[in-house]
């Protein structure tokens, strides 16, 4: 891919915030606290973070499961950040989601045929003269499942197969954008690879754009076009995947990359920098002042305790939100001039 030609932006998120009120008045869980990113047509943006970093909340905001507190979401140039319950049907057709655990995202009391038929019926997809059943069999073929699965219940098929059904449901309406919320983390390692390969194939086949939510950074190396790291409701670093893994800038990213378990010494050598991991993600209710990462940061200075850093572009398309790089943008401008 690379960054030779700029593909069109299909999804633009601007300064998105999602706060949840707590039982105590005036206190909020700042699940997502002012994030901006774009997803370009045909690419995969990997949104990576620990549990509690706000990555799933971001996904739910994009898909319209609940409304935003502040900020804007544009899909194909149209503002969709309004009332999440009143999204037009055409938008629901174009924007689909695959949930983390197919054990809970497929109704146990409905057959796979009924599950797959719902989006087709809602969006009136098999037109005149075409049979619903043919379309269902075709859908199952797309995800490499045999046609007799139409009459099976989710509980009588395997976990990986269930996730394929969930993927088939998302693709039933011919969407252009799919949000994948940790689609492999509930599955056995043996089927994870199969699902990932299928997702890559389907992306090419149907020219899909993915927003891929995960906590598995190593997965992103082969899958993502660009990677964004979330920490405490904010994006710490966002960069093209190649660049991201070769020269991570943010101390948090460096920490995450050095904590990926590897087997061989050669792989260990590939790691850009060794930063020991310490501490846990703080509570999003009591966000520490200054940079949210400073209690765990090995390079924290006085300014990190007081001022929250802003996003800067260190090299084209590589953004970092850290005081260590605060001067980088101006420096580059000077060099460029």
């Amino acid at each position: 891919m690379g960054c030779n030609t700029m593909a069109k932006d299909i999804l633009v998120v601007e300064n998105l915030k999602k706060y949840f009120p707590t039982k105590k008045k005036g206190l909020y869980v700042k699940a997502v606290d002012g994030i901006s990113f774009t997803v370009r047509e045909g690419e995969t943006l990997g949104l990576v973070g620990e549990s509690g970093s706000g990555k799933s909340t971001t996904a739910y905001n994009v898909i319209g499961m609940y409304g935003v507190t502040a900020g804007k979401i544009y899909f194909k140039g149209v503002d969709i950040s309004g009332d999440a319950g009143k999204r037009p049907l055409s938008l629901k057709k174009d924007l689909q989601m695959v949930f983390q655990d197919p054990g809970t995202s497929l109704n146990p009391q409905r057959t796979i045929g009924q599950i797959l038929a719902l989006p087709l019926k809602v969006h009136k997809i098999p037109g005149e003269g075409e049979r619903l059943e043919d379309r269902l069999i075709q859908l199952l073929e797309t995800v490499e499942l045999p046609p007799e699965y139409i009459y099976k219940y989710p509980r009588s098929i395997g976990g990986g197969e269930r996730q394929m059904v969930a993927i088939a449901r998302a693709l039933a309406t011919n969407p252009s954008f799919v949000v994948l919320d940790e689609p492999t983390s509930a599955l056995d390692v043996s089927v994870q690879a199969k699902i990932i390969n299928m997702l890559i194939r389907l992306q090419k086949q149907f020219n899909l754009s993915y927003l891929f939510i995960t906590h598995d950074l190593s997965l992103m190396r082969n899958l993502a076009t660009r990677v964004a790291i979330m920490y405490l409701g904010k994006i710490a670093e966002i960069a093209p995947a190649v660049d991201f893994f070769r020269s991570p800038k943010h101390p948090y990213t460096q920490m995450l990359l050095s904590s990926i378990p590897v087997i061989s010494g050669a792989e260990e050598e590939m790691k850009p920098k060794k930063v020991p991991s310490r501490g846990e993600i703080p509570s999003p209710v009591n966000v520490p002042p200054g940079c949210g990462f400073h209690p765990r940061c090995p390079m924290a200075r006085q300014i990190c305790l007081e001022v929250d850093p802003i996003m800067v572009e260190t090299i084209p398309d590589h953004f970092v939100r850290c005081h260590l790089f605060a001067g980088a943008a101006e420096a580059r401008e000077v060099v460029g001039a």
């Binding site: 049907l89 989601m97 949930f99 655990d101 109704n107 009924q114 989006p119 809602v122």
Partner: peptide, 25 residues
């Protein structure tokens, strides 16, 4: 449940969600 959310997100009507997704359970 996520399967109810999934049907809502794809645009299923309220009667469908109530009688086809929730009632069978």
């Amino acid at each position: 449940e996520f399967y109810v959310k999934a049907s809502e997100l794809t645009g299923a009507s309220k009667p469908h969600v109530i009688f086809r997704e929730i009632l069978p359970n």
